[in-house]
Design a protein around this nucleic acid. Sequence first.
DNA 1: ACCCAGGTGTTTC
DNA 2: GAAACACATGGG
Length: 220
Amino acid sequence: MTKAAEVYRLLLRDLGPQHWWPADSPFEVIVGALLMPQTSWRNVEKAIGNLKRAGMLSPAAIAASRLDRLRAVVKPAGLYRTKPPRLREFCRHMMRASGGDVDAFLRRDREALRLELLSLKGVGPETADSILLYAAQVKVFVVDTYTRRAGRRLGLFEHEDYDSIQSYFRRNVPDDLYVYQEYHALMVALAKHACRARPRCGACPLLEVCRHGRACSKRA
DNA sequence: ACCCAGGTGTTTC
DNA sequence: GAAACACATGGG
């Protein structure tokens, strides 16, 4: 078993299945991914809740919305000068590409879809891959800050760029969609859990991974 | 009164 | 090209 696979086994054992991405629909995953950067999930949840209450959680509704209105609704997600216009433009793109049919939009060729996503403003590699993995059920590994920190701290790799780290996981974890989805979710769960755990779980060495990639100094 | 968050685009050496 | 910077809200 590879080291990466062993890490996965321990995370799953000690933190349990995460059942990611927390969302009721593929479109909600997309909206969440677009609102997420540099923002706490709590705030993204608020913004999505506002969209739901406003009856705006659909490509058509957002595509047709007025910018000041959309801005007010997703305000908790912050970065109001960039996120709302990009979210609306993303939805307008989906309207053109598939008439707003989210499943049809996501069902197309994965390589082409990834490039298409990356071509849209506000969509970088992590956002694109999150959409692919959790909305389109495409088997791509998502690399985020926590994955980098934890992976480095655990000695899986050192200061690699996005593609290298993604490639590392592709080569070292089981070729399985569920594993891909859970692995990334568990890395985030680990990061959130590590510093907070009091008392620390002494049985799991992985929980020494802390924010900033250092060993956690706050021992129980 | 800081610092941070499941990045991205732009500007600057 | 790599590295630094701006971005905005809400919570610790």
